[in-house]
């Protein structure tokens, strides 16, 4: 089927099987460099995207569901102030994700702090577990998200 949707703010169309995984299409048809797929069952968080404004594991999204929707990958944040906030937040924490999880952890952080620059701890603790790469500790990632949120608040004067 021909699937038209918005990817990182641009209209795209792709011929894909309706049951194809969004992650697979992003990787192989649309050559999104940041996209990875690992567990293929929505557990590992390698393939996180922002789909219709919500963060989700794209390996579990069939292409028939993508028709007419909006998808954002980390490439959609390149050059943005939002990404700079996160970079500063990570840097001030000394948080350095590995090259395999840098994109999903950054995108997850963006999703969390864009929705609420003061995320509730309870909610944060659940959401931050969405990426299960073991290069850093979870507590360290939580601290990095909190600092990224602080950067965002300070830029948007939500102090």
């Amino acid at each position: 089927m021909r699937v038209r949707f918005t990817l990182n703010g641009k209209a795209v169309q792709v011929d894909a099987e309706p049951e194809a995984r969004l992650s697979d299409v992003l990787m192989h048809h649309l050559e999104i460099a940041s996209m990875r797929q690992d567990c293929s069952e929505g557990r590992c968080g390698s393939c996180l995207v922002i789909f219709e404004g919500i963060i989700v594991s794209s390996c579990m999204i069939p292409m028939f569901r993508v028709l007419g929707t909006e998808v954002v990958t980390i490439e959609g944040l390149f050059g943005s102030r939002d990404l700079r906030d996160i970079e500063r937040g990570f840097q001030s924490t000394g948080f350095e994700p590995c090259r395999y999880c840098a994109a999903p952890k950054t995108l997850l952080t963006h999703a969390i702090i864009s929705e609420n620059t003061r995320p509730r701890e309870e909610e944060l603790e659940v959401q931050a577990q969405a990426v299960r790469c073991r290069c850093t500790s979870y507590q360290h990632f939580l601290e990095a998200i909190r600092n990224a949120a602080k950067q965002r608040r300070s830029r948007t004067r939500d102090i």
């Binding site: 099987e17 995984r21 929505g42």
Partner: peptide, 16 residues
């Protein structure tokens, strides 16, 4: 939600 669909196989497709 479609979250109960897949198996472990990395086939590039979901079992719809």
């Amino acid at each position: 939600g479609g979250t109960a669909l897949s198996g472990l196989e990395d086939t590039g497709r979901l079992a719809i």
